[in-house]
């Protein structure tokens, strides 16, 4: 119990430390006096225009994907569920790929075309899945899960088709976007994704106790007074808003939504009232750290952060599981 409390209290501190330190780290290491001493210096510009927004984008994406992963794992009572299981990421990816393939360059209400298309793609996938599950059997978990997997595969095939039909440059852009990355410049992209992501985040944060109930099974939850179809719709809407927003920002970054909730459970136990907070801080720390590594490993070239999260996350996850069993 005491260890869990210690972990719970230390996670925000670790996150705060990462926020204070990570923007200074990169191919060119920055020093605080260079950044804060002369606001017009190149170091200050690098810090405020490139590094800080990128770290913040990583924090938002990491936190949101981790929280979404926690919610869907509880909802489906499936440890392998991820935020992308519902087909949202594939929908967003298809939207973005379609936009790149058309070669358009539009902006609507301050939203870039790519953001808009990827968000619309995520929304289309979710609406299709909700509609199907609602019509068939009042949002049964199995239907949602299977419909999500099916629509994910279908959209992925359409993305491959678009890549096949694209010229080399567009095909490469699509491929690069699919790898996930945090190459934001300034705060505009971040601010575009923030409002909807926050709405989704608040919805999930308010449902920690309900996630506990849902993780014990739907029938028992209903008997305890939980309006399961309503709460499920709310939680899935929250997940959809969050995932649509951050996938539009950073692409489908792999592994965070699967791994972070498991690590949080190992550290803090199964209570979602604590876990919702813990995954926020863990996700918001883990992804920017991976992004710094992605920038350093082949500096001055950059690796897509999705590659790092998968390369680090996979072995780490297996190590954690093995350690737990022994």
């Amino acid at each position: 119990m005491k260890t869990r409390t210690l972990w719970f209290l230390s996670l925000p501190l670790v996150w705060l430390l990462s926020l204070l330190v990570l923007p200074f780290i990169g191919a060119e290491m920055l020093r605080p006096h260079e950044v804060f001493g002369d606001p017009g210096s190149s170091s200050a510009t690098l810090f405020w225009v490139l590094r800080l927004p990128r770290v913040l984008a990583g924090m938002l994406t990491g936190a949101v994907l981790a929280l979404a992963g926690l919610a869907v794992q509880a909802l489906f009572r499936n440890p392998l569920a991820t935020p992308f299981t519902l087909g949202t990421a594939s929908g967003a990816s298809l939207g973005a790929s379609l936009y790149i393939w058309t070669g358009w360059s539009v902006s609507v209400l301050g939203l870039s075309g790519q953001t808009l298309f990827s968000f619309l793609g995520a929304a289309a996938a979710l609406l299709f899945i909700y509609g199907l599950a609602w019509l068939k059997d009042n949002m049964a978990a199995e239907t949602l899960l299977l419909a999500g997997v099916a629509i994910g595969i279908f959209f992925s095939s359409l993305i491959l088709l678009l890549q096949y039909l694209s010229d080399q440059a567009h095909s490469l852009r699509i491929l690069r976007w699919l790898m996930g990355g945090l190459e934001v410049v300034g705060y505009r992209d971040l601010l575009q994704s923030l409002p909807l992501a926050l709405v989704g985040l608040v919805i999930i944060m308010f449902h920690g106790f309900e996630l506990n109930l849902l993780s014990t099974g739907e029938e028992l939850s209903q008997a305890r007074g939980l309006d399961v179809p309503r709460v499920k719709l709310l939680i899935l809407s929250g997940v959809g808003l969050m995932v649509g927003s951050v996938v539009a920002l950073a692409g489908p970054v792999a592994f965070i939504g699967l791994m972070v909730p498991h690590v949080a459970r190992l550290l803090l136990g199964p209570d979602h009232r604590r876990l919702t907070w813990a995954v926020l801080f863990l996700g918001a720390t883990f992804l920017p750290v991976c992004d710094v590594l992605a920038r350093l490993i082949l500096a001055p070239a950059e690796l897509p952060v999705g590659i790092i999260t998968a390369l680090l996350g996979g072995p780490f996850f297996i190590w954690v599981l093995t350690r737990k069993k022994t």
């Binding site: 009572r77 506990n212 109930l213 993780s215 014990t216 099974g217 305890r224 136990g269 199964p270």
Partner: peptide, 14 residues
Amino acid sequence: ARQDHFTVREFVLM
């Protein structure tokens, strides 16, 4: 049913 390692008290509290 299979539970996620809740303690007895956490479960009863639900």
